[in-house]
């Protein structure tokens, strides 16, 4: 009997590793090895024909910290995250409350909110180009109705990043809405009835009952919005290319430029390591929150 159990255990181990191996190989090739290789190459100097690469320790990092563009990009990305995260959460919540309520044309409203989610960021950027173009763009046309001067939204440092931020919010709010919508549908009807009997206003009901019940969803969405604030940069390629004078450049775009336009792989690697560190912190926070959420259930 024990011999049989032993055989079965060994069989399971062999099968387990066999089934796992294709995924394990690809994960190693395209996630684990590249992560280690990035760390490794961030510690070496950039090789030229005369000077071969050599170990320089944290010099690449020090150089990056001394690079004023790096700090502009970091500041831009913090502003990008600091605005897109709360605003898209707020809009997503408003959308969900409306789309869940008894309103007219609910089907149309839901579709309209969600549609940007299925569009590629590049297409979204092209659509918005029509709004932002100076002189011809829709925004300028509306402005001229009120006698406002033409504004080059994408071409001046004060507005370029904001134009980028608006496109991002437009793209992600409808996606976040569906998670709120699903969560709203799990709130029992009798809570609303009880609140009505107690004479609570709609605002009180929303603030005291709905929002706390939506808290786990809000945290989930916040983590996703945070990841998006690193990841969503495609529209930069169409709208501003990070300009004018780096005013709308974000970290991932700068990494791309470093590596594929300036061929400075060590600096790109050092910056990548910092992004991975930030994502790691986000991950840790999410794990902690996931632990907490299980207590609700």
């Amino acid at each position: 009997m024990s011999a049989h159990a032993n055989l079965e255990r060994r069989r399971q181990a062999i099968y387990g590793w066999l089934l796992l191996s294709p995924a394990a190989i690809l994960l190693t090739l395209f996630a684990f090895y590249p992560s280690v290789a990035t760390l490794w190459s961030s510690l070496f100097s950039r090789g030229t024909r005369r000077n071969p690469t050599e170990f320089v320790g944290t010099e690449n990092y020090a150089e990056l910290f001394a690079d004023p563009t790096f700090w502009i990009v970091v500041k831009n990305n913090l502003l990008y995250a600091g605005v897109t995260i709360p605003v898209s959460i707020f809009i997503a919540l408003s959308m969900a409350l409306w789309a869940n309520g008894k309103i007219r044309a609910r089907g149309f409203v839901r579709t309209a909110y969600f549609t940007p989610t299925v569009l590629p960021m590049i297409a979204a950027a092209n659509l918005w180009l029509f709004f932002y173009t100076p002189g011809l763009g829709v925004l300028d046309q509306i402005g001229s109705l009120f006698g406002l001067p033409s504004v080059n939204w994408l071409g001046q440092p004060e507005t370029a990043l904001w134009a980028i931020i608006i496109v991002t919010i437009w793209k992600e709010a409808g996606f976040f809405m569906i998670f709120y919508l699903a969560a709203l549908q799990t709130i029992p009807e009798d809570l609303k009835e009880a609140a009505d009997i107690e004479g609570a206003s709609r605002w009180t009901y929303t603030r005291r009952i709905v929002l706390p019940l939506l808290m786990p969803t809000t945290l989930f969405i916040a983590v996703n919005a945070m990841i998006n604030s690193v990841k969503l940069i495609d529209h930069l390629f169409i709208l501003t290319k990070g300009g004018p004078s780096d005013a709308s450049k974000l970290i991932l775009y700068y990494i791309y430029e470093m590596a594929f336009a300036f061929f400075d792989a060590p600096s790109a690697a050092a910056m990548t390591m910092m992004v991975i560190a930030v994502l790691g912190i986000v991950a840790a926070v999410q794990f902690l929150y996931l632990d907490k959420r299980t207590h609700y259930q």
Binding site: A37, V230, I255, A259, A265, A269, L279, G280
Partner: peptide
């Protein structure tokens, strides 16, 4: 799940 493929573009390109 948390190391986005987008972040590893440089090394993945080399691979």
């Amino acid at each position: 799940l948390f190391i986005l493929p987008e972040v590893l573009i440089v090394e993945n390109y080399a691979m």
